[in-house]
Write a protein that binds this DNA or RNA. Structure first.
Lengths: 373, 373
DNA sequence: AAACAGTTTAAAAGGGATTTAAATTTATGG
DNA sequence: CCATAAATTTAAATCCCTTTTAAACTGTTT
């Protein structure tokens, strides 16, 4: 009976308030007249069709006649219909939500990855929820849990330092596939997309060695991430291959920001045996490093050579323009997103590690060895 | 009858596959045995309680005895229960989702605002969905629509250039309150949080005038945003008050990035009448400007003074350290988020414009007038 | 025995899109 | 014009589970 009454009301085209403000459609200060929420059935009823037809038409099913579809779409627009994804996900068990969690979205390295992910997901009409974990395992787990609560379809993550396998498993066990980017975790069996760090840093180190440098510092990165270990290993191997002794004094772990690079510069320049070149963890550290060198009255690229890593947009406009290693952020982001979407649509399982080969970008921040006065 | 059967089955504690893999809980390669999805009723049944009690207990209702609550929470943990927000939002008509859309999240100005918003929303266990609109009205509208489809509770936006009132109205009409940050729209009646741009830029301009500069350029910003108009107005007013003629040659609209600032430097230095000081749209433009000046062999802060805007973290480690205008990003973000949450919980309506008073941060990129050789 | 405070529960409500087999309409061929 | 095929449309079942309320229990106190 209640239903009957409701249907009668709904047939009334001028759908105005009355018993209207449940949930949606609140009483604005403008006057209290509120539009009733428009759903599939509203469109169906106003056109004298069934919800089945409307549903099919809006999704461009070939089952529906073209004229009918056009009429339906027009009516949907006219009534201001908004597709209700929650209701749809009741049936489809797909929410269209994909989570992405990285160390810090303000870091341009991740920013460039995220941009690529965004572009890829947009093409599939997926919504993505972004979060920083700031290397807090708890924050990361909270995020995974939130995503599960919302019914997320999948998650792309650059795992926080110390991420336990269980946390990845938590997602997978609840039917939410995970994909890793930028960092690996030992023993995990989900797809991973990242640059070949050991190779990349060896490019930079060899470039400096080729310029005659022998006293080469390495600034930034930590042994707690796979990336950190790989890059340090790449640096050490390159030195060894050139018969250069590895001086622990010249290894400054930690910095990942401009601020950190700046401080490391101050420290390095206070050493009795100053390095003539510095391999930096990333472009941010390198730029901070160059600022620190400049502040001390020396000229980066002339007195001390500096290499970055990532080839951010900023690298080419730094002063001097930064010699760095292109790390394929856009590739990583795009591939990871694509892989997840493919996995979700069941086409294929892109398991294993996918390494992107870095490339050298030589600019003005490196130059031949010169003795500091 | 079906229900009866189901209940009987569910009472069976070892809930293994059988008729289990609907939606969640997929058949992993590990063995094919899959955990049944745990819901409120699972906890209730295994403990011999009702779902009502469990629901209340998990939300710390005082109605439930302490011992019972502890038992329930323990069981929830043991079973790996995950709260289903979509089901919950059926009743509460709150999804816990809040949208945030800005021009570009990679821009540190927005980054700092977002960080503050994130912190505030986190405290209320709200999830936020982030998006860039890159000043595309379409992309922004798509975002609003997506948010409505997901049942978003509210939206915080820094509106794209040319945002029509209807798009804000679209959100509001569907019961999703909007709050604006950083930029205004003419004629809109939702709360706005932003810095006092005209005042802020006048601080910077007056600072330069006080140092003796008379040939002061302004680089960046566009007349298409309220912010752009306000800042330009602040600059013009300050000059006029000091009886300095406004030279249109010295006004370069557009740039918002380091790259843009760099290019503007090249242009300005090619003018017959070079400026002795530059008021920049933001810190990024200012840093690019300084890079450009340095690249031309001049010294920023000595040969040409440069002011930034926003006081990003980066400003203080730039070379030279950047004189800039603190713009209260954290305040804007925090207040906007707070206002939205308050509005959602019905406590009060924070309508109108909320202006944050900027402050001058004087560092080394500005200095007394000097004549260029 | 009545009143009460402290707990627990039954059962209704809350939301709307998707899907399938079946029903209907329209076209085609003989 | 009928029989069948092809093209459309539809009825109705199905997907999901938490929250909320008034009412029903306990066990104690007066």
């Amino acid at each position: 009976m209640y239903e009957k009454c409701r249907e009668a009301c709904c047939k009334n085209l001028t759908r105005i308030g009355l018993w209207g403000w449940r949930g949606r459609g609140r009483n604005r200060a403008t006057g209290g007249i509120v539009a009733q929420k428009v759903k599939l059935s509203t469109i169906a009823e106003t056109l004298g069709l069934s919800t089945a037809t409307v549903s099919l038409a809006l999704r461009d099913s070939p089952l529906v006649a073209t004229v009918t579809r056009d009429k339906i779409k027009e009516q949907a627009r006219a009534l201001g219909y908004i597709y209700n994804r929650r209701a749809a996900s009741l049936r489809t068990s797909r929410s269209g939500i994909i989570g992405v969690v990285v160390h810090d979205i303000m870091n341009p390295f991740y920013g460039e990855i995220l941009k690529a992910i965004e572009a890829e997901l947009d093409r599939d009409k997926q919504t993505f929820i972004l979060s920083n974990h700031y290397d807090s395992v708890e924050k990361q787990r909270d995020f995974i849990e939130t995503l599960l609560q919302l019914g997320g379809d999948g998650v792309i993550m650059s795992p926080a330092i110390g991420t336990p396998l269980e946390d990845i498993q938590l997602a997978e066990d609840n039917g939410m596939p995970a994909i890793l980017i930028a960092r690996s975790i030992e023993g995990v069996d989900v797809p991973i997309f990242r640059g070949d760090d050991a190779y990349g840093i060896s490019l930079a180190t060899n470039h400096l060695i080729g310029l005659g440098h022998r006293c080469i510092a390495m600034v930034g990165g930590t042994d707690q991430t796979s990336t950190g270990r790989d890059r340090y290993q790449g640096y050490v191997n390159a030195l060894r291959k050139a018969n250069i002794e590895v001086d622990p004094e010249l290894r400054i772990p930690g910095p990942r920001t401009k601020q950190g690079g700046f401080e490391a510069a101050v420290h390095l320049l206070s050493l009795p045996q100053k390095p003539t070149a510095v391999v930096c963890w990333n472009d941010l550290v390198a730029i901070g490093m160059m600022n620190g060198i400049a502040r001390a009255g020396l000229v980066p690229g002339v007195d001390i050579s500096v290499t970055g890593y990532d080839d951010l947009e900023e690298a080419s406009i730094a002063t001097p323009a930064l010699t760095t290693v292109w790390n394929g952020q856009a590739d990583v982001g795009r591939s990871a997103a694509r892989a997840l979407l493919d996995k979700l649509s069941g086409s294929h399982e892109p398991d294993g590690i996918h390494l992107i080969k870095p490339e050298m970008r030589i600019r003005q921040s490196t130059g031949p060895l010169r003795v500091i006065a």
